[in-house]
Design a protein around this nucleic acid. Structure first.
Lengths: 217, 217
DNA sequence: ACTTGTGAACTGTTTCACAGCA
DNA sequence: TGCTGTGAAACAGTTCACAAGT
């Protein structure tokens, strides 16, 4: 698999998205799909689909299209979804617990093997199929279970410390739900999901539309 | 307030982000901030900060910088955060419940006034300061309480129906956590948050780094 | 005939660099 | 002198359009 030097974030997001569309197509028994059809189902242009895919290899057959099963396999491999990813969640509040038990994670190979929290009342309780461990056990657990992905769902004040501890124990990717920007060394990837910022994007859009009743165009 | 025709999504995200940085600065008693300092705290370039802000008005003073309090107010206004936004959550599973009680939402003016679910066992229970209502009450409630924002945290199969019902009752913005793309008419804004896709971005990044040990550059 | 893969054109975004103003 | 606001330049991402393969 020849991976190119630099892939844009939006391309990677679309690969995940294509994979979901392909699964839906496969469930209907379709064996072949054109970039045109894929684009239609995903609300994109066919050129975009072809550019994205051709970045990683020649998966299609001219005149015919893409083999659904083969492309599904190829995309899974590119995204690293052909293996299991032991994952931990730090912070077992409402959001952390919801993430720990989120069924979609497990079905994509992200196995949440433990949650961690400082609250003694939470330690020992079960969340989904995982158990809440005390924060003191974090590094040992991560090392022992070869955890490479950590999800941070702590209050902002605790996030950077949680991040540093995860990284020091060998975690390579961090999904950060706290409204703080995290410092990590090279080789560690952070993705931020800031739920309040998403809602603010909506209030902006609604406000602007009301100010400009004419709308775009 | 002169709003421009078209603002990019990334610009709007950064405005929210500037607002968070400004609040932190204000808490330390600082009254004035330069684009350079703002950029440093946000991990951006100063030109980016100035371009973003100048898009909406001349908030700065040459030779001096930006007044923290004034800029905070201006950004709040631009983002529509100088008012309360009655909001409902559809789907009172783990994720929906966590979102219903998420403290950061309320502090930004997004008041979750109710959650909705089909499960009779959940109806009537309290989640944070909201109550779970049956789905049958959705439209009436939204109209009566003038709800303009809806959060969808249902299974994929129920998402499009929930979306259509929210829109028909007058909702203008939808934050969609289900892994489906939603169809909405003009004038309604959708933001998708796909948690599995975020994790897949991490597995991709880790996989690519392992294939290219040299790294970028 | 059909559909991919891809250079070239285009569009949008970020960075540069400096004129203009306090 | 210091820092904003902004055209111009550089860069990145998307779309076009067609040659090439089946």
């Amino acid at each position: 698999m020849s991976s190119p030097r630099k892939v844009s974030d939006s391309t990677v997001r679309r690969l995940s998205y294509y994979l979901r569309i392909l699964r839906a197509i496969a469930a209907e028994g379709t064996e072949t799909v054109s970039s045109e059809r894929l684009a239609e189902l995903g609300g994109l242009t066919s050129a975009q689909v072809r550019k994205d895919l051709s970045f990683f290899g020649n998966f299609g057959v001219r005149g015919r299209g893409y083999d659904v099963e083969a492309l599904t396999g190829a995309l899974s491999g590119i995204l690293g979804l052909d293996r299991a990813w032991p994952t931990v969640v730090v912070g077992a509040g409402r959001l952390g617990s919801a993430l720990t038990a989120y069924p979609e994670f497990r079905s994509q190979g992200f196995h949440i093997v433990a949650a961690f929290d400082n609250d003694a009342a939470k330690v020992g309780t079960a969340v989904g199929s995982a158990t809440v461990h005390p924060m003191t056990e974090l590094e040992d657990f991560v090392r022992q279970e070869n955890v490479s992905i950590g999800v941070i769902a702590t209050p902002a004040a605790a996030a950077q410390d949680a991040c540093a501890r995860l990284v020091s124990a060998g975690v390579r990717g961090i999904l950060n739900f706290s409204p703080t920007s995290l410092e990590v060394p090279d080789g560690v990837t952070v993705r931020n999901v800031n739920l309040a910022i998403e809602l603010e994007g909506l209030s902006f859009a609604i406000t602007v539309q009301d100010v400009l009743p004419g709308g775009a165009h």
